[in-house]
Design a protein around this nucleic acid. Structure first.
Lengths: 219, 219
DNA sequence: TTTATAATTTAGACAAATCTAAAAATATGT
DNA sequence: ACATATTTTTAGATTTGTCTAAATTATAAA
């Protein structure tokens, strides 16, 4: 498989995870930052290779083989991210671009050994689950901070948007995975939240709150 | 730079190190396993980019920039090889192919951090010197086992041929870098050697002896 | 020095991945 | 349901890296 093919497969997988029912040519084009006509060409190719189901004008979806392939690429991406943070002291906002390159390295043994070196991590630095060697994949069933009722407490477990800007915003405000957050008040007007984190009080916009995955805890 | 361009630059550098005075189109083609016509095309391109000196029918050589580029790629290749052996327990005959892929990953910071993780190694698993961050490069001035006089002792410090077959031959005969070798006798007829290594006696063909770098030691 | 051989370059073609512009199919609004 | 807007596909062109076959230049041999 070429890098380009792998990137398309990954994009289709991610669109699927985002809950898009039927994946359109335009959606893929937007995610890949290419033109729809390029997507059409690639879908024909991937279809011939048995990686996607594709019928003209009908949208696209991954075959079983395509899904397996996507999970393998995502596994590599996320393991490399853990490596960069845990072993090379990169920050979580720096690792994505490098992992985008490393995910295309071909060597099953390399990934298995890397997995072992990192003690078989289950999540990447952004809280995303790492698919297993045999394609086991646990979608996280976490809630977004914005969906949690007022007064309850939760642990920060992941980010939905893992762009560098968002991650640096969290760093700046000392919000890290593992932190406990208590929702003090929700502003009716703009759905912004007043929260308590490490005894500090913070004000988070709705946009921030809907990009933070949390796990509710009982008091 | 594309992967292909980088591979050509590396090939030209290695041909230069092998003591070839003028590097011909055919020599590059052979090393790259392509056709001479492909080489001509690429040389024009690299020449326009200022990486090589090239004049039709006159052969090719690296510019200062080209040499700097080659050293950077070789530095990456060799650091990754050390990583694979030291951190992931690969054997020295397994690392070349994977490092061929990893050497194209773009990130200065990644390489600096990797260098640090590995405690700034000076040699790769085959005994080849690792170029420094600023292009410092120490060609090893070692002798080949075949050039050492009878009766003298030497330490095994590197391999000239680092193909998997040769490396596995050395493994099979318990010859590793760091081992002390004493040359007992040289057979006039075929230049094969009788050596003493770890109290074991071994018989090495001329071909083997001329692919092992050693450093002479005084008794 | 002329000729034969080998090395190198040019010309033209191809596959991969992309693009633009035009055509075709589907979806939407009244 | 019909016209319009949107989406998707097709057709044809471009770039990169490769190839084959033919032409050119350099080298070696008689």
């Amino acid at each position: 498989m070429t890098h380009s093919e792998e990137n398309y497969i990954k994009a289709i997988f991610h669109l699927g995870s985002e809950g898009v029912e039927v994946i359109s040519t335009n959606a893929v084009a937007e995610k890949m930052e290419t033109k729809p006509s390029s997507v059409t060409d690639m879908m024909k190719k991937l279809s011939e290779k048995g990686l996607v189901h594709y019928k003209k004008y009908q949208g696209v979806s991954l075959t079983t083989l395509g899904t397996k392939t996507a999970l393998s690429i995502i596994r590599k991406h996320r393991l490399w991210e853990v490596f960069l943070v845990e072993k090379l002291d990169f920050t979580w906002d720096e690792v994505h671009e490098i992992a985008e390159q490393l995910e295309h390295i071909e060597s099953e043994k390399l990934i298995d050994k890397l997995d072992e070196l990192l003690s078989f991590p289950k999540f990447d630095p952004h809280g995303d689950p790492i698919p297993g060697k045999n394609g086991e994949f646990m979608e996280h069933d976490n809630q977004l901070l914005s969906q949690i009722p007022i007064g309850s407490s939760a642990i920060c477990v992941g980010v939905k948007d893992s762009s560098a800007v968002f991650l640096r915003f969290l760093d700046k405000n000392n919000i890290a995975l593992g932190n406990k957050i208590k929702i003090v008040e929700k502003e009716e007007f703009d759905n912004s939240l007043r929260i308590l984190i490490d005894k500090r009080e913070l004000h988070l916009s709705q946009q921030i709150a809907s990009n933070l995955y949390v796990k509710k805890i009982k008091l």
